[in-house]
Amino acid sequence: MTLFPRTVNETTSRELRKTFRNPSEIFYPLIFFVLVLTMFPFAIPPVPGLFNSIASGILWTAALLAISLSLETLFKADYRSGALEVIHLSGADLVLVGVGKSLGHWIISGLPIALLAFPIGWALDLNFLTLWVLVLTLMLGSATMSLTGASISALTVGLRGGGFLLVMLTLPFFVPLLIFGSSAATNASLGIVPEAELYFLGGMFVLSLTVAPWATAHAIRIRLG
């Protein structure tokens, strides 16, 4: 017995297999994430405690941009090669394909970024509680981004200027995640339990899991038509 339906398992393992054979897709978002975080300290004045107070916000912003950039590739190769057409005509459940694609994207981009935030946050002198809250919020937020972003990625795939359109369309959905995610980490650093923010992020994840795969399936049909 497996945790997910067969179509989700197969789609996710296909995504992971093809990405690990072309690992630049994994490394670009991670390198972007690390570069932004290593460059930022050079750009702010050396006021004691300043960087520490804004570090979680910077980590969240860098994560959001890195994940947004990686969304463009989610359907691109399958659309160009005609594989998306073949999958659609095979009678596969496109909703489950959407879940599998999102899960694969999260494992490749969101999860490593969330895990990488721990040592980077530690190097930026964030306390232990803040680090845990940061990783937890990034995990929840990035999973929501993968689910929501997949539907917009499917809708914009193959369009001229689709990459720009994708970023413009996803940002309004991602900004609330950024606000609540960074606020949770900031509150944790002040010793306040970020209960409300975590509930909000959890709710957003459940909502996107409930709605986004259907939107992805519909977007695939629209783009193939």
């Binding site: 197969e10 296909r14 297999r17 093809k18 072309n22 090669s81 594989a83 057409e85 999958i87 095979s90």
Partner: peptide, 19 residues
């Protein structure tokens, strides 16, 4: 309609699993 980073067999096996 084939994914370039998968083998022919992997491409067909995927289809056979989801179709």
């Amino acid at each position: 309609g084939l994914e370039e980073n998968l083998s022919p067999l992997e491409n067909l096996n995927f289809l056979s699993q989801v179709s």
